[in-house]
Computed example of a mutant assay.
Amino acid sequence: MKASLLRISGQVQGVGYRDWLVREARRHGLWGWVRNRSDGTVEALVAGELDALQAVLTACRRGPPSARVTGIDEQFAEPPSEPGFSRRPTL
């Protein structure tokens, strides 16, 4: 299992990005979480098989229709200990 910690910037808050990412991650069988950050970015830990992870990372660059993604900072991370994908409170 591979894992990445993402920091997504642009117009990504108030446009349904987190709910969209939860659906995308679950559809691809990924584990992890997503949350808004107080600086206006969205942060997500995504983990799973490499093909599924790459598909979701590609989708994250587009985001939902109302979003405008200007950048994604990706770092390697430890996979989460619990299965499933959830939405967390703002940090």
Rank of each mutant, 00 (worst) to 15 (best):
Gly84Asp: 09
Glu74Lys: 06
Gly16Ile: 03
Asp73Phe: 04
Pro79Thr: 03
Ala77Ser: 15
Glu74Met: 10
Arg26Trp: 01
Leu21Val: 05
Arg35Val: 00
Phe85Asp: 01
Ala3Glu: 07
Glu78Tyr: 00
Trp31Arg: 15
Ile72Asn: 13
Arg18Ile: 06
Arg68Gly: 01
Ala67Ile: 04
Gln75Thr: 11
Glu49Met: 08
Leu50Trp: 05
Gly29Thr: 05
Asp19Arg: 08
Gly29Asn: 12
Val22Cys: 14
Glu24Gln: 15
Cys60Phe: 04
Gly10Asp: 04
Thr41Tyr: 05
Gln54Val: 08
Tyr17Asn: 07
Lys2Gly: 04
Gly32Pro: 14
Asp39Trp: 02
Asp39Gln: 06
Arg87Pro: 00
Leu57His: 09
Val69Arg: 06
Gly10Arg: 01
Val34Asn: 07
Leu6His: 05
Thr58Val: 12
Gly32Asn: 12
Arg18Lys: 08
Trp33Asp: 04
Arg23Ser: 11
Val56Lys: 13
Arg27Met: 02
Arg87Lys: 12
Val42Lys: 02
Arg88Gln: 13
Ala67Cys: 12
Arg27Leu: 11
Val34Lys: 04
His28Ser: 13
Met1Ile: 07
Glu82Arg: 09
Trp20Lys: 10
Glu78Ala: 15
Phe85Trp: 02
Met1Tyr: 02
Ser66Thr: 07
Pro83Asp: 14
Val69Met: 09
Phe76Gly: 14
Glu43Phe: 08
Leu50Phe: 02
Glu82Trp: 00
Lys2Ser: 14
Gly71Tyr: 08
Leu45Ser: 09
Asp51Ile: 00
Glu74Phe: 00
Asp51Glu: 12
Arg88Leu: 15
Asp39Glu: 13
Val69Tyr: 06
Gly48Thr: 07
Arg62Val: 09
Gly63Glu: 11
Ala44Val: 07
Glu82His: 04
Leu5Thr: 01
Thr90Leu: 02
Leu21Gln: 05
Gly63Lys: 08
Gln13Tyr: 03
Val34Met: 06
Thr58Trp: 00
Leu91Ala: 12
Asp51Lys: 10
Ala44Tyr: 01
Ser81Leu: 09
Ala52Glu: 03
Leu6Trp: 02
Leu30Thr: 13
Ala77Gly: 13
Pro79His: 01
Gly71Pro: 14
Arg37Gly: 07
Ser86Asp: 09
Arg7Gln: 11
Arg18Thr: 04
Pro65Trp: 13
Trp31Lys: 12
Ala44Ser: 14
Glu82Thr: 14
Val22Gln: 15
Ile72His: 09
Gly10His: 01
Gln13Trp: 03
Ala3Trp: 00
Asp73Tyr: 04
His28Phe: 13
Glu74Tyr: 00
Trp33Thr: 04
Ala77Arg: 06
Trp20Tyr: 15
Glu78Asp: 15
Val42Thr: 06
Thr58Gly: 15
Trp20Ser: 13
Glu49Pro: 14
Trp20Phe: 14
His28Tyr: 14
Pro80Asp: 13
Asp51Cys: 01
Arg87Ile: 11
Leu6Ser: 01
Arg27Asn: 10
Glu49Ala: 15
Ala55Phe: 04
Gly84Tyr: 00
Ala59Cys: 10
